[in-house]
């Protein structure tokens, strides 16, 4: 797999992905989420605005081994999107090779006591999961879009 961005973004495919990361010249988007993969209309809505020439596919967590098999020989420049830290950990544990994990959108709620950026809020439990990912040799950094500076968390 040719991964150009591995990102936690609870909005999955949205304006920032469509417009703010075009410089990566990505050709393929893989979304891993039980919520989206099992929602037919949700998937259709996610595909609105995906530019011509860019493909997208959706997998639920159980299908991770299928995803790895399907995508193994795919050389297209690929963005992997997950919706939360637990799913990011599953992707890393499944053997996907990524150098860095981008934190894109994790919206504010009462459990997320750490304010990391204006779009990224993290609970103590989620911080532990991110540390676990960092301990596997992956740089964890916050960056909304390409024009923002990347800020390393771990």
């Amino acid at each position: 797999m040719n991964i150009v961005l591995f990102r936690i973004d609870e909005r999955f495919i949205h304006g920032q992905i469509l417009q703010g990361w075009r410089g990566l010249e990505y050709q393929h988007i893989v979304v891993i989420s039980d919520k989206i993969a099992e929602d037919k209309m949700g998937k259709e809505l996610q595909l609105i605005g995906v530019p011509d020439g860019v493909t997208a596919c959706f997998y639920n967590k159980k299908e991770l081994p299928d995803m790895i098999r399907d995508q193994a020989k795919n050389t297209r420049r690929t963005i992997i999107l997950v919706g939360n830290v637990e799913d990011a950990l599953l992707v890393v544990q499944s053997g996907i090779k990524a150098d860095r994990l981008n934190l894109g959108v994790m919206s504010r709620n009462s459990f997320r006591t750490h304010t990391v950026s204006n779009a990224v809020y993290v609970s103590p439990e989620e911080m532990d999961v991110l540390k676990q990912i960092a301990d596997m040799g992956i740089v964890v950094e916050v960056q909304g879009v390409e024009r923002d500076a990347a800020v390393r968390l771990f």
Partner: peptide, 16 residues
């Protein structure tokens, strides 16, 4: 505002 943006995606769910 933006086709494919989050406002678009979320509003789209109300087309039901």
């Amino acid at each position: 505002d933006l086709i494919g943006g989050n406002c678009c995606t979320i509003s789209g769910a109300f087309l039901l």
